[in-house]
Design a protein around this nucleic acid. Structure first.
Length: 441
RNA sequence: GUGGCUGUAGCUCAGUUGGUUAGAGCGCCGGAUUGUGAUUCCGGAGGUCGGGGGUUCAAGACCCCUCAGCCACCCCA
């Protein structure tokens, strides 16, 4: 007897399978995001995973080009997998600007691919969860971005978090006064690493890659180190950008954003102005923002974004300014797990209907249906088996309730509802079962 | 893409300077208990020692390559 040759089941480096206990909280998080986005009027879109290579490489950065999954399709076309959702949005907006009308608000939750090296929390396939408003420059959309993130994190169950905002114009204003405007990309990249690497290393990088003098580097670090309440920070940085029209205007803009967030009723304790937030991406031109969890700062930013002047300049003459942000799905889920905000249930249903009187299948089906009609997710065990074995199954899968009825109960028109966690059980009439189950959940 | 660490049962890990049939806990399956789980007791299954090559009388252990994971750089979600 020869053994059958099996292909080894395995997944590619940087790609993941999601079993039920992982997928259940994942879907819940994305549903929450969807709900909040929709509540602000953002509409869903989707775009193809595969794009013409020229659409994706147009952005030009060497890094993203290196990370791009690219190949020739069966028709010999050069194609690539999208590496973010912003480029597809730019293409989409340019392609349909006339039909869409402005402003255009969309959210997009979908996987993207990057062929880069893996690390904890960094994969080659991961989901991005973006929302953007295209076609407007007003401060209201700046404020809204902060509010969406604020509402979203609260809706997910986080209480202690800090949304750190800054304005590229403030940074650029400072660079103007320092005479470093032409090195802004290098300077911003270095400053972005401040919390991670510390002042000394940033100072060294400022000198080496941006060519900053000791004095210039000192001013930059002094600026980035300003802390305190929003008012204190604004007051402290205003003189540093004095003389730069753009810098002064940007400080004013930040003031307006803070005022708006407060007016909307969001907690200003959760919003800080942080001059060290730069964001590595060089297409940001206005408000930039990062969000950290107060209890897990080491996990990094869980939501970040900013304002850009020109989203789709590569694809159309029409100027499309906008603002948007992205949720770090994997980081948020890691944090939720860490903070005990997710259970480890392997089933999305609330109740298991135990099936052991083989000739009463119809009664069981009816019972399960009545529970579902009341909004109680109910799984009927698929074959008649010992009660003990089925309760064991219910426990293992993480059902919260077991509904038990045999010939005796059906005879009396009753059933037992058992709370698995406590072992308590109540006996109710079949008609009352759905309401009783709702109460016990 | 560069550098470092790691890989033994489903999971977490033991395994002496290379030396007989590679172990434990948890989990899993079955039974005690054919109408009550998670606690108890008894029994059982399960390992190409990540994969390939080499050194050796002998390799889980040593060497090379490869795959995967983790960490740092880079960049970013």
């Amino acid at each position: 007897m020869s053994k059958p040759q099996h292909i080894e089941p395995r997944t590619l480096k940087g790609f993941r399978d999601y079993p039920p206990e992982v997928m259940i909280p994942r879907e819940r998080l994305m549903e929450t995001a969807r709900r909040v986005y929709r509540s602000y009027g953002y509409a869903p879109i989707d775009t193809p995973a595969l794009e013409y290579l020229e659409i994706l490489t147009g952005k030009g950065s060497d890094e993203t080009d290196k990370q791009l999954y690219r190949f020739k399709d069966h028709g010999g076309r050069d194609v690539g997998l999208r590496f973010d959702l912003t480029v597809p949005l730019a293409r989409f907006a340019a392609q349909y600007a006339q039909q869409l009308g402005l402003p255009f608000k969309r959210y997009h939750i979908a996987p993207v691919w990057r062929g880069e090296n893996t690390q904890r929390g960094r994969y080659r396939e991961f989901v991005q969860c973006d929302f953007d408003t295209v076609g407007v420059t007003g401060v209201a959309s700046d404020i809204e971005m902060v509010l969406v993130i604020h509402d979203l994190l609260l809706a997910v169950g986080f209480e202690r978090f800090t949304i750190r905002v800054n304005h590229r114009g403030v940074l650029n204003g400072l660079l103007e006064t320092l005479g470093l405007s032409d090195r802004s990309t290098e300077v911003l990249r270095a400053l972005d690493k401040l919390t991670k690497m510390g002042a000394d290393k940033v100072r060294a990088e400022l000198a080496s890659t941006a060519g900053a003098s000791d004095e210039q580097a000192g001013k930059l670090l002094e600026f980035a180190a300003v802390t305190g309440s929003a008012d204190e920070v604004l007051t402290a940085i205003a003189p540093l950008v004095a003389g730069s029209e753009r810098g002064e205007a940007s400080v004013g803009r930040l003031r307006e954003v803070l005022a708006g967030v407060g007016a909307a009723g969001a907690s200003l304790d959760r919003v800080r102005i942080d001059p060290s937030i730069a964001r590595g991406l060089d297409y940001y031109t206005g408000l930039v923002l990062e969000t950290t969890l107060d209890d897990l700062p080491e996990i990094g930013s869980v939501a970040s974004g900013g304002r850009y002047d020109d989203l789709a300049g590569l694809y159309t003459k029409q100027a499309l300014p906008g603002i948007g942000a992205s949720l770090g799905v994997d980081r948020l889920l890691a944090a939720m797990e860490e903070l005990g905000l997710v259970g480890d249930s392997k089933t999305p249903a609330d109740a298991l209907v135990v099936y052991f009187a083989e000739d009463r299948l119809g009664d069981y089906l009816k019972l399960a249906a009545s529970l579902r009609a009341a909004g109680v997710g109910a799984e009927l065990y698929p074959e008649a088996k010992k009660v003990g074995a089925q309760l064991k199954y219910a426990d293992k899968k993480g059902f919260r309730l077991a509904v038990i009825a045999g010939p005796d109960e059906f005879e009396r028109g009753e059933c037992q509802i058992k709370v698995l966690a406590t072992g308590e059980s109540v006996t109710v009439s079949l008609a009352e079962a759905p309401a009783a189950a709702q109460r016990l959940l």
